[in-house]
C-alpha cells in the first residue's frame, strides 16, 4: 500500500486494503509513547487508533513527541 507517511512516499507491506493506525504502528515498529496522528490532515485521537483507517494514496502523519522545553 503506497501512502504519504510523514511527508514521504512510503510503501507499506500488507495484503489489506485498509489499515488502522495501530496496525501501522506495529508494521513500522513505532514504539514512541507520545504521538500526534493525522490522516489526510484530520487529527486521529489516541482512543481511535484501533478504529481509524487509511488506504492507498492517503496522507498519514505519525508525529513523535519527545520531551524538552
Amino acid at each position: 500500500m503506497k501512502i504519504t507517511l510523514n511527508n514521504n512516499i512510503e510503501v507499506i507491506e500488507t495484503s489489506e486494503d485498509r489499515l488502522t493506525i495501530n496496525q501501522l504502528l506495529q508494521i513500522k515498529k513505532y514504539s514512541f509513547k507520545n504521538l500526534v496522528v493525522k490522516i489526510n490532515g484530520e487529527l486521529v485521537k489516541r482512543d481511535s487508533y484501533d478504529q481509524a483507517k487509511f488506504k492507498e494514496g492517503d496522507k498519514v502523519d505519525v508525529i513523535h513527541m519527545i520531551s524538552g522545553g
Binding site: 507520545n34 513527541m65 519527545i66 522545553g69
Partner: peptide, 10 residues
Amino acid sequence: KAEMKEMIVE
C-alpha cells in the same frame, strides 16, 4: 514533557 505536548496538540 512529551505527554503535555501531545495533550495540547490534541
